[in-house]
């Protein structure tokens, strides 16, 4: 029987990089439900942006758990999002040269932002600023 499925999302690619990418979208998406939505709920439901300041981040990043949580979220959200932008590029950018250029920009962004974000979450040391932090009260 021929079943014609409407293309919701995409047809599963048959192999190679596109198949890994397809699985990665779905796996990272499922994890991001907990990570990204959990993060937004912590920031906007449990707290409000009026409570967020440097000390707030210093307190949270005191715990290795939240550092690991943020780091995992950084990786997954960035690679999922930029890989998604790649899908959009492939739909709209037809000329081969421009496409190679756009892909290079996206993977460069991925690398640069993974480095910036990892530096922030892994090397942050609040004790460097302790003196300043406590003068405020």
């Amino acid at each position: 029987m021929t079943t014609v499925r409407p293309h919701i999302g995409r047809e599963r690619p048959s192999g190679g990089f596109e198949l890994y990418s397809w699985y990665f979208f779905r796996l990272s998406g499922l994890l991001l439900i907990f990570l990204a939505i959990g993060h937004v709920v912590i920031m906007h439901v449990v707290n409000t942006v009026d409570e967020i300041d440097w000390q707030f981040v210093a307190d949270r990043w005191n715990s290795p758990f939240w550092r690991a949580y943020d780091w995992l979220m950084l990786f997954l959200a960035l690679l999922h999002g930029l890989n998604g932008a790649r899908l959009a590029v492939d739909d709209y950018v037809r000329p081969q040269g421009w496409r190679v250029f756009a892909h290079s920009v996206l993977w460069t962004l991925a690398l640069v932002f993974l480095i910036i974000g990892s530096l922030a979450v892994l090397t942050f040391d609040p004790s460097k600023f302790e003196v300043v932090a406590h003068t405020g009260g």
């Binding site: 960035l78 999002g81 998604g84 974000g117 530096l119 922030a120 942050f124 460097k128 300043v132 932090a133």
Partner: peptide, 21 residues
């Protein structure tokens, strides 16, 4: 794409915690 755009700005703003309070 909208959340991605925010995320890129957000990574830069959070990076600034390393520059002190």
């Amino acid at each position: 794409l909208g959340v991605l755009l925010f995320l890129l700005l957000h990574i830069v703003d959070i990076f600034l915690v390393n520059y002190g309070p």
